[in-house]
Design a protein around this nucleic acid. Sequence first.
DNA 1: CTTCATGCAAAAAGTTTGCATCCTC
DNA 2: GAGGATGCAAACTTTTTGCATGAAG
Lengths: 170, 170
Amino acid sequence: MPVPQTQLDEVHELFADFLKARGQRQTSERVAVLDALYVSGEHLDADALFARLKEDGVSVSRATVYNTLELLIECDLVVKHQFGKTQARYERSFAYWQHDHLLCIDCGEIFEFCDPRLQSIQDTVAEIYGFEIAQHSLTMYGHCRREDCERKEGMEARGNRGKEGLRLEF
Amino acid sequence: MPVPQTQLDEVHELFADFLKARGQRQTSERVAVLDALYVSGEHLDADALFARLKEDGVSVSRATVYNTLELLIECDLVVKHQFGKTQARYERSFAYWQHDHLLCIDCGEIFEFCDPRLQSIQDTVAEIYGFEIAQHSLTMYGHCRREDCERKEGMEARGNRGKEGLRLEF
DNA sequence: CTTCATGCAAAAAGTTTGCATCCTC
DNA sequence: GAGGATGCAAACTTTTTGCATGAAG
């Protein structure tokens, strides 16, 4: 689901302001990374993002991708996820509903959901442990029922050696 | 909190049975890795586990540590966590309450909690998305109030360059 | 005595860093 | 024009793999 142009403009402005405030420059590479994440709305890993940019004819180095992601995370335009893998994935976060994730163990597809009860849990935990909770990460892992879910990712990644495709890591 | 001897025996037996069933050998190294995780009950990363074993006078290679962890995960005696870092942590999982985690952004301390409402959320999500949910991972990140919480890990890991120590990754 | 497991070291995979060149501001 | 940004490649970190040696069954 692509982001509407007005929102993309708004995000560009936020990023520009953030950079200006820190005396950093607005380069075409930085904007390209921002756009790649906002236009697709997918949960991309650094390498997929790098490939996507190259496909789009934008030439950036991996170092710049990582540098820019760091900046985007700092100004809260992007969040980094560690969906049970050593490799991180990045997702746009501005003007987008706060949500958690549901991941298909077989095909790797990611779904998003939101449940208000999680806030109650967070409040309870904060009170019991005397914590000031800044953020949370909730991911559910299971088997989806899409007709085109063919365990593709599980097969590739794990050589189909168990009843389940991906190795679960919590 | 160390595990009682009777439980350690039980875990040894489970592991022995698992290995025998697969025609694999019970070596002292494998048992040592299992014990290291069960005796301390901590959430160790592979390297810390390696170091702990060396401290205890057990000489195992990193490769064996990783191999054994894989086995222990397969027989559900250990779970792997990816607490928003590229580096995984491992925790014993047998005869231990099912719980989620609360992590101090400043000192890195890990607390455990359990809230029955999460099961309700899981059921709802499963129904709405038509998923058969196998597992979930919930981690809350915040600031603890221990008097000896001195942001130590944040300082080391990130060079104290922000208002918060650890980089959050969700 | 036959595998299977270990240890070592090399390779992978993901990410970070140093530095000369380039380009915003 | 000056200082931050880029690209490249090398370094680093964590994890995986290949192979000769060693030990469990």
